[in-house]
Amino acid sequence: MTPGESPPLAHPAEGLAPAGPRASRMARRRGLWAAAALAALLLVPFWLSDRYVMHLWVTFYLFAALALAWDLIGGYAGQLSLGHAAFFALGAYTPVLLLQRWGLSPIAGGVLGAALAAAVAVGIGSIVFRLRGVFFAMATIAFAEIVRALLLHFRSLTQGDNGLAIPFTGERPLDLMFRSEAPFYVIALGLVVVTLAVTARMRRSRIGYYLRAIRDDQDAAESLGVVSRDVKLAALVASAALTALGGTVYAFDIGFINPDSTASLGLSIEIAIMAIIGGVGTLAGPIVGAGMIVALTQITNAALGSRGGASTALYGLLLMVTVLLRPAGLAALWSRPTGRRGERRGAA
């Protein structure tokens, strides 16, 4: 479902760990499949030598993690954030600056970046969660644009539009400097696993339950005692921190960051689109969405040359199609036909 709309009739116990021997057998089988898949994916760098394809995998994993992280607030909480690039940028710039000025390892720097993003999320959340609907979306856009303007303005710190390049001057693992793409493959895959774990955990937890209640009907939930602001904040904080980690991986893999490639509206929209097309509120949805967009971008680049724009046009088209025809996203292609889409007059 697109954010803000009610899901199909949910099983009352959905999200709560089902009990019983059959359920635990199913869970174990799922766990085995997951472990097997992970092992297979980890073996890929050993036989893949093509640097370009490896880079594609890294891009896919990165976007999958970003889409999953976005989904925490966009899907489960139903808050359409179009400003997530701000957190991505914080996660990109913080470790780079800490490395270049104080020699701090980007591993520590990345953690600090995530912490900073979480703190900013608390601050901005308490402001924007007072707004609903269109105003909320516009406020998130404004927030990201403010971050971008600040990054551009404080040139003595960030080199502004010029960006920061991380010169590659030799293999240094603790500084995340690798000649080959393989280490980034592993790191990015790790990030996906972590994000998946956080999402899965959250779904089963009390917070996940409250989020669903808020998404269905915030006023009703509040009347039952759910402090919606705190719950939404929790989701946003987790989402922001994970998005920031994505920014850190990106920065050191690409070796160059600037406000336009990290804090842009286009990136915020792209992340949201991936989760929506794939299917918000599901574990596979954002991953499928990310894979589709990455694949589509590659195919259009290969077929149409480096002339930009084709992939953007395509995923804009996909988003429109999803909204009009398949609001539950691709993931819904495999579930029961969706019930009546929730009709709600625009809240404001």
Binding site: T2, G4, E5, R307, G309, A313, M320, A347
Partner: peptide
């Protein structure tokens, strides 16, 4: 087609349209 639906659906439709037009123009 989205007039009766939620704010988010309307936003996403026009956001998609925006990306489509920009990308097409660029291409």
């Amino acid at each position: 087609r989205v007039l009766g639906r939620t704010d988010e659906a309307q936003i996403l439709l026009t956001v998609g349209l925006s990306a489509f037009l920009q990308g097409a123009a660029l291409f």
